[in-house]
Design a protein around this nucleic acid. Structure first.
Length: 875
RNA sequence: GCGGGAGUGGCGGAAUGGUAGACGCACGGGACUUAAAAUCCCGGGAUCGCAAGAUCGUGCGGGUUCGAGUCCCGCCUUCCGUACCA
């Protein structure tokens, strides 16, 4: 056995230590001595991880390797590269672990971070570790609270369409004292409101709308219910329009932009007031089809609507009460699963503002309390749901839009010509909308309105392991911010983290902490809610720019230089949550002059999910991998054959791949290479450990090409660049560079394998010193440990990380002889070896000769000759 | 229901409208070895044929084109997202 084989286990730690010790990847900032202003900047960011107890899984290194290749490549291309890593470490798992074991979340968090850092460093990523941050660190929490304070001190000026300091808010003069305070509070971007929110008793907290799916918590899948509670809210709706519009300006996947647009859910329409018959009450509705107002034959309120009790007549009271109770007890899932319409008449009537008709008022759970005004005008002739409801309960249907010829179906929901609408009969839908809106505005009965699906962000949680609010409640019922100089408000120590089962925040138990003084020195109480764990990730990309600044969240000059993030890589699961919240905070910071760009992330890329192998028995049930064995090429479990399929990695299927194991067997460079070689970065793909051997062998062959395995000495180099290899190398350099730029890492690796195959073929000439060096350089972003080692052995004293990426010349890309296919009637019949400079007529002549037997005696109708590509003869 | 991807060998995948299956895995054969591992070489889309070769072939059916995996129309399957948003 040769003693100088490629040994990642000894070579990789050596270089990881070297990089850390020499701070190879420290990034100088503007204003520092070693900062080079002449270079362009490149900020490449990973979505930072939540450091879970389970450690890294193979999905993490996928995105991290991609960004690392880009970071290393851009450094070699002469960019100042910002490439940081940190920890999104607040959140429920650490707290749930504390409930089970009594270990304080801060201890769990520290252990997990240490483990994550160790694992990430063992993969050789070129992060600037001097910029490491954790959202849980007091020096970070301080500025998260500072941004909250900024939100609290900002109001949204509709006229200017931007956030402004609360001190500039025009307050009506007649408002004094408590009224004045209440008015100001009602305009803040951070405000307290009582509203129906999702409460999850298993998690012991309320959740944001975005965190609840089908009535179950996104995390843990626990049932949630709606309760009216007093909560901190962030006025993200004020930015709805800009959050939608500015998506046009960023280079993001269309799917993601679309998801955000749909989440924001902008729709144009009108608000219309319906007078209640015999009462001064009005019911306000939102509709996107005000042109169908003549067809509104009844109204439907959400069961939770505030006027329900008041508008119920005594003879309907019992039935209405029953219906409201029934709705409240139904889970969201039951509500949406059952598409059959249910409802209950209230017994009272409203007046259709355009024709004075008396129309009945109903309640039904198909009208959502949380959208629009929680009430609708029902137009059963032109809305599917209203139509179903009307047929169910025998309510009148009036046609007010002419359906096109040949339209079949009960309900025409498209645009058409207005009929049975005296004010605008004959008008097309868009025109009719304008007419009716103008009419309603003149009468004071309605107005044009843009409605958003987006709700304000419920920002408080009742948990422990999150940022406390920098808020103090005074005795008189008013509140004040904790002074910036007093930040951060740190979490009190707590021993018992069990949820109380009621919506009382956990921090309320910390009596000594809660009791405090206000700025006037009077007894006061701290806010006991904590922030959701999105808070820390809303601005971490800004803190990376200036992570140790204790005077301000970041230096403005540095921010101007580094922002925006040039490339942001992370999973699709954050398409609406994190990415929308972060954009919102960024826009507020922009309006208030703290950042220089309206959008934080210029280009966004989602890596695909990595799935595991799984086995399916004949009943199509998945069998855990440890019960499966391979016998003569077929997979067997419990004596039955099973089929190999792909499925999500999960503990229960026993198919989770641990990067540590792969690393031990093949090394970090192979793991990196394999993750990139699996396929395109953005697609879902199955992990197959056997395939890692392929890239491992490739790296071994690179090693053997340069190093004598017997002696460990560098093999002799060729004296000059062998021309055929030189051409192949130029082609490879071009392909690798182009493919890195377009993030097609799999084909870049394939190109290097092709070059290696040529360079190590039996009759291949020796690589020259220059050729070896260039090979090492282009491979180095992918397999940095191996390449640093080879670089050193090639005689270099300094890291290759800042050496310029090899260049290629165009005329080296062309071969002396190329193969040109000849087709007859589109079918391949011959191949010609010709010079690329051959002229068209000559090529045609050669082609005719080559396929003479196919042309025999036939007349050529058409000849297509594409120089350097192909010849097609049509007979 | 709606929206968005994707369907190419045994598997992962590659192909600016121009030689389909690069590269890798697995598999088969061979070399080296006492043997194995490791390494190296050769071969693999299907069908027919001893072979040269021929025919078919990128989910299915049409179309555009000298030429379609790629573009257009209509389906099927599958994955992901979303769910009464007025």
């Amino acid at each position: 056995m040769s003693s100088h084989r490629y040994q990642p286990s000894s070579l990789e730690p050596k270089w990881q230590e070297y990089w850390l010790k020499n701070k190879t990847f420290r990034t100088p900032d503007p204003g520092q001595d070693d900062f080079d202003q002449s270079k362009p900047k490149y900020y490449v960011l990973d979505m930072f991880p939540y450091p879970s107890g389970a450690g890294l899984h193979v999905g993490h290194p996928e995105g991290y390797t991609a960004t690392d290749i880009l970071a290393r490549y851009k450094r070699m291309k002469g960019f100042n590269v910002m490439h940081p890593m940190g920890w999104d470490a607040f959140g429920l798992p650490a707290e749930q672990y504390a409930v089970q074991t009594g270990t304080h979340p801060s201890i769990t968090t520290r252990t997990n971070i240490d483990n994550f850092r160790r694992q990430i460093q063992s993969l050789g990523f070129s992060y600037d570790w001097d910029r490491e941050i954790s959202t849980t660190h007091p020096a970070y929490v301080r500025w998260t609270q500072w941004i909250f304070s900024l939100l609290y001190e900002t109001w949204f000026d509709e006229a200017e369409g931007k956030g402004r300091p609360i001190s500039e808010l025009p307050v009506p003069e007649e408002l004094k004292g408590a009224q004045r305070v209440a008015y100001i509070n009602s305009k803040r971007l951070a405000y307290i409101d009582e509203m129906a929110v999702w409460w999850c008793s298993a998690l012991g907290t309320v959740l944001a709308n975005e965190e609840v799916i089908d009535g179950k918590s996104e995390r843990g899948n626990h049932p949630c219910m709606r309760l009216p509670l007093r909560q901190w809210m962030l006025r993200i709706t004020a930015y709805a329009s800009r959050l939608g519009r500015d998506l046009d300006e960023v280079d993001w996947p269309e799917e993601t932009k679309k998801q955000q647009r749909e989440w924001i859910g902008e729709s144009q329409g009108a608000e219309i007031d319906f007078q209640v018959d015999g009462s001064s009450d009005k019911i306000r509705v939102f509709t996107t089809r005000p042109d169908t107002l003549y067809g509104a034959t009844f109204m439907v309120l959400a069961p939770e609507h505030g006027l329900v009790t008041k508008l119920t007549t005594p003879e309907h009271a019992e039935a209405v009460h029953d219906y409201v109770l029934k709705t409240a007890s139904k889970s969201e899932l039951e509500r949406s699963a059952n598409k059959e319409k249910t409802g209950q008449a209230l017994g009272s009537f409203a007046i259709n503002p355009v024709n004075g008709q008396k129309i009945p008022i109903w309640i039904s759970d198909y009208v959502l309390a949380t959208y629009g005004t929680g009430a609708i005008m029902s137009v059963p002739g032109h809305d599917e749901r209203d139509g179903e409801f009307a047929r169910q309960f025998g309510l009148p249907i009036v046609e007010v839009v002419k359906a096109p010829e040949g339209f079949e179906g009960d309900c025409f929901t498209g645009e058409g010509i207005a009929i049975n609408s005296p004010l605008f009969d004959g008008q097309a839908t868009p025109e009719a909308k304008k007419t009716i809106i103008a009419h309603l505005e003149k009468e004071g009965k309605g107005k044009g309105k843009t409605q958003y699906r987006l709700r304000d962000w419920i920002f408080s949680r009742q948990r422990y392991w999150g940022e406390p609010f920098p808020i103090i409640h005074r005795q008189d019922g008013t509140s004040e911010l904790v002074a910036d100089s007093q930040l951060p408000v740190e979490l009190p120590d707590l021993e018992d983290f069990r949820p109380s089962g009621n919506p009382e925040p956990l921090l309320a138990k910390a009596r000594e902490w809660v009791n405090t003084k206000d700025s006037a020195g009077k007894d006061a109480l701290r806010e006991t809610n904590t922030m959701p764990n999105w808070a820390g990730s809303c601005w971490y990309y800004l803190r990376f720019i200036d992570p140790r600044n204790d005077q301000q969240p970041w230096d403005r000059e540095r921010e101007k230089y580094w922002m925006p993030v040039d490339l942001y890589v992370g999973g699709r699961e954050h398409a609406v949550l994190h990415l929308l919240y972060a954009r919102f905070w960024h826009k507020v910071l922009f309006d208030r002059g703290y950042v220089s760009t309206p959008e934080p992330f210029r280009k966004l890329f989602h890596q695909g999910m990595i799935l595991g192998m799984a086995y399916e028995d004949q009943e199509k049930k998945l069998v855990p991998s440890d019960q499966v064995s391979e016998v003569d090429g077929t997979f067997m479990a419990h004596g039955q054959p099973v089929k190999q399929v792909v499925a999500k990695m999960s503990k229960s299927l026993k198919n989770v791949v641990n990067p540590d194991d792969i690393l031990r067997e093949f090394g970090a460079d192979s793991l990196r290479m394999y993750e990139m070689f699996m396929g395109p970065l953005d697609i879902t793909k199955p992990w197959n450990t056997k395939d890692v051997g392929g890239v491992y062998r490739f790296l071994q062959r690179v090693w053997r090409l340069l190093v004598d395995e017997e002696s460990g000495a560098l093999k002799p180099a060729g004296l000059a660049d062998a021309p055929e290899l030189e051409r192949a190398l130029h082609r490879c350099i071009k392909k690798v560079g182009d493919d890195i730029e377009r993030m097609a890492f799999n084909t870049a690796i394939s190109a290097m394998m092709i070059f290696l195959n040529e360079a190590s073929a039996n009759n291949a000439p020796l690589l020259s010193q220059s050729q070896r060096e260039r090979l090492v350089l282009i491979l180095s972003p992918f397999a940095p440990h191996l390449c640093e080692e080879l670089w050193e052995r090639l005689g270099h004293k300094k890291t290759l990380a800042y050496h310029s990426f090899p260049s290629y010349s165009e005329d080296m890309l062309v071969d002396d002889v190329i193969e040109v296919p000849v087709q007859v009637n589109g079918k391949l019949r011959a191949r010609l070896q010709v010079s690329p400079e051959i002229d068209k007529d000559e090529l045609e002549k050669m082609a005719r000769q080559a396929v003479a037997e196919w042309l025999d005696g036939k007349e050529t109708k058409k000849v297509v000759v594409i120089p350097k590509r192909m010849v097609n003869l049509v007979v």
